[in-house]
Nucleic acid binder design. Structure first.
Lengths: 225, 225
DNA sequence: TTTATTTATGACTTTATTATAACATACGGA
DNA sequence: TCCGTATGTTATAATAAAGTCATAAATAAA
């Protein structure tokens, strides 16, 4: 079994978890603050892990931020482990894409069982490399976009926007989400940048440009026609 | 959209769950004893469901037995919902292949979030988000409204009003409630704004506009016809 | 019936949002 | 370095939405 990434600032808890899991034959790598966590979970850092255990209250960057950061690049299972038992927090955790939310204190045996179940459930599903929507095809590995089987060149930003829209076809994506997902949470430019890139993207897509619909006050949506 | 199978002998709990989920656009089919449950979950009976919620203490056959039975034919996500909080039971649940184990009492919002997360994780298409009332359908993810399967565009306020009414069909909603829920508690405009948006909403809904009834002195109510 | 209250309606004003184009800046490769 | 591309900003125009108001209509109460 692959390793688990544990993000938790309480060293005692880390130790207990590490010991229990390694006795069962599962490796744990621990990180003890938000900044480190952001580093490890950035870009391809998660490829060697099969699950993330994530505390919420951490120095330097909270768990929610880290989870959002993880979800920008990865579909890896994430379990929050935290003392925060408020309904708001739990719901928020699920909204930003966690798989489970465990409230401290907890039983190690249950935590272990949950990890096992989740890893089994997430196993062996890797995303295809070609996204499709109506006349638009997007090869996310070769970084090529085709409209009606004719190759269309897209600059990086336009490509990333289209990729995000295609990964969420039919969903309405607001500008802030796009700014977060394409530009990054640390970007503070104006909304208008999105409009401009959408405009360029529509133009580049030619006849298929109309598949990107504007929903006033709410964002953009990619549809099949 | 696929349904959720609920196996639970407490009719009150069934009703509460059914109501909450159907308000959110997800269908529930309930079964109230072990024998029936074994019948429904046998062989290909689960093809129409995307998740199973399963109580443990049931008449005629307990939840563990049912879960084992499910796992003989299917990989469908299974969540135990039970008052049995003993470590043994939890671990046993995971051993026989459940995906989550929720201890009563629980928050409906959390149960719903867990179901969503697990269905997403299991590769099933995400949960339904389509509210329905008579001829009106409202897709809260795509932000699209259909009347008799014809798409109708609704501006934001009209959409939010209709959404609130559909989440509370047959209930009388007074203007203040709408102002609070749709405009926000910090809004201090006049009641007349509600009337005007209701008017626009009725017009946009065309033939189905009449489903919004006025109760003088009390508010509005959305009915099935 | 008359009166008071409540709601519907349409014209209108104000506000918010988006599209567009021109411009400025940054970046990377020859 | 220079040039072309990519990106981001800003101002303006175009559009859509939200809100207000006066009046008419409907309903309830006296």
């Amino acid at each position: 079994m692959k390793k688990i990434l544990l993000i938790e600032d309480d060293l005692q808890i880390c130790e207990v978890i590490e010991k229990y899991f390694s006795n069962k034959g599962t490796g744990i790598f621990s990180v003890h603050n938000g900044a480190e966590a952001l580093k490890v979970t950035g870009s391809t850092g998660l490829e060697n892990y099969s699950l993330v255990l994530l505390d919420i209250m951490l120095p330097q960057a909270d768990g929610f931020t880290i989870c959002r950061n993880i979800r920008r690049n990865s579909n890896i299972p994430v379990i929050f482990i935290t003392a925060r038992a408020r309904e708001d927090d739990i719901i928020h955790g699920y909204e930003i894409g966690c798989d489970d939310y465990i409230i401290k204190p907890f039983l190690l045996s249950v935590l272990y069982a949950k990890c096992e179940a989740l890893i089994k459930r997430s196993g062996g599903r890797s995303m295809g490399t070609v996204l499709e929507c109506g006349n638009i095809k997007l090869d996310t590995r070769r970084l090529v976009c085709c409209v009606s089987d004719t190759e269309v060149y897209l600059p990086r930003k336009e490509f990333e926007i289209l990729k995000y829209l295609m990964e969420h076809q039919n969903c309405v994506i607001d500008r802030n989400t796009l700014l977060d997902r394409v530009w990054g949470i640390d970007y503070f430019g104006s909304d208008r940048a999105v409009d401009n890139h959408i405009r360029k993207l529509r133009k580049a897509l030619g006849t298929a440009g109309g598949q990107i619909k504007t929903l006033i006050g709410r964002g953009y949506r990619l549809t099949e026609r």
